[in-house]
């Protein structure tokens, strides 16, 4: 079963401030460990929302409304994700809880989601 860890955007990540050096090292080590255990499927970082757009469908069946970034609701944005393939929920939880603080400024948030099986 596959799980996704979503690293939420922070005020720092949105302003393009890189994570603290310790955080970068810890995250690299974490991903290396996932890789070595054979569970890592993907790990990507995203540019801040100022480089993208938001597409909203405010009216069912209607045309979408576009809004270029940056998006003000920083905490609802993603800054990166990691996809792992594990054999049980316990294993996913164990891996997820070992993930380090993504940027080291006291704002880090990670959401763990189980991915829908096709």
């Amino acid at each position: 079963m596959r799980y996704m860890l979503i690293m939420r955007a922070t005020r720092h990540s949105e302003a393009g401030i890189p994570p603290r050096a310790e955080s970068i090292e810890a995250m690299n080590a974490y991903h290396a460990e996932l890789e070595k255990a054979g569970v890592l499927l993907a790990a990507e970082r995203l540019l801040p929302s100022s480089n993208g757009i938001r597409i909203a469908y405010p009216n069912a069946g209607g045309s979408p409304a576009f809004a270029s970034g940056p998006i003000d609701q920083v905490n609802e944005l993603a800054a990166g994700y990691t996809v792992i393939d594990v054999t049980s929920e316990e294993e996913a939880l164990a891996w997820a809880k070992r993930a380090p603080d993504p940027n080291g400024y006291g704002e880090g948030v990670i959401d763990l989601h189980r991915m829908l099986d096709e």
Binding site: R11, E14, A15, G16, I17, L47, P48, S49, S50, N51, G69, P70, D72
Partner: peptide
């Protein structure tokens, strides 16, 4: 200033 910093981030790209 937070938003301005975010905008400069995109501008620098």
């Amino acid at each position: 200033w937070m938003r301005i910093a975010a905008l400069y981030e995109a501008l620098s790209r």
